[in-house]
Design a protein around this nucleic acid. Sequence first.
DNA 1: CGTTAACCGTTGCAAACGCAACTACTTTGT
DNA 2: ACAAAGTAGTTGCGTTTGCAACGGTTAACG
Lengths: 153, 153
Amino acid sequence: MSSTARQDNVIFLTNRVGRQLARVMLERMEFEEFLPQGTHMGLLSDLMEHDGMRQQDLAISTIKDKGTVARALNHLEQGQFIERRIDPHDRRQKHIYLTEKAHRLWHYAAERARRTIDIASHEITPEDMHTCVKVLQKMYTNLHDELSQNEKE
Amino acid sequence: MSSTARQDNVIFLTNRVGRQLARVMLERMEFEEFLPQGTHMGLLSDLMEHDGMRQQDLAISTIKDKGTVARALNHLEQGQFIERRIDPHDRRQKHIYLTEKAHRLWHYAAERARRTIDIASHEITPEDMHTCVKVLQKMYTNLHDELSQNEKE
DNA sequence: CGTTAACCGTTGCAAACGCAACTACTTTGT
DNA sequence: ACAAAGTAGTTGCGTTTGCAACGGTTAACG
């Protein structure tokens, strides 16, 4: 635990903290008969903000392969958390909509998420936490740009 | 991309940024004949700081299942990046040591890691980045305490 | 002592992932 | 108008992962 505070570790640090957060949040989580494997919560998170997103855009924002997203959505659809609707103007695209059940799940999960963040942010000033989030978001877009740029080559 | 700057998203945000960072770093990475799958770099990172760690402690610090670590080490051992040595005082434990080859790999990877971080930290002030890392480390220990506490119950 | 409990590492299994090949549909260019 | 290129989503495959069960080793305690 005596890790020097060198920035070199951001790469591994973010990975680890991310997984820890998810793990603590999902611990002992149960929702009716069906519990969407924690991994899929990220999809719901995005859909909560932009209901009706296209599958493609979901893959981009969650940084997952489109195949992975397709299968995750199969799972969520089977559990009746989402609904796929084909775009009438472009029959290739599908838009994803949340069901009422998903909203109930999210409401339930949000509580746990808040508790998890409380635990994680113990003894961290709100200002520091805020800049941390700000920095993460900036890194997110920076890397997003880099990745999409590389794709074009 | 219009994500509100609410802290609620730290959970998914850290996950995503973490995966992005790893992905950018590993892009087009090649090392002689054998490239340790990026996932295993975290293990090397820890070993660089504490050579001779026990397997168990590696699992704890990287937040991975001990089974996962065992298999990853098999892979790294096969590639001659690490060496397992049984503790003479307790034959259950194994200590992990890096080989010279691992040091060469790390040197090679460190360059790419630095470049990746440069990309990610574009237009982020060093102070903000520093507090971000500080916050992540604090969250890490906070969550670590929480997890080990839950285990005891 | 000797039995029981705790511990570390390994292995079986099912879920999730990324990559790449494929299908269906749309846009582009001549 | 038609062939060619491009796009969105699905599917196959091999790898990584966490969980749980197991085997061998040490510690705890009557």
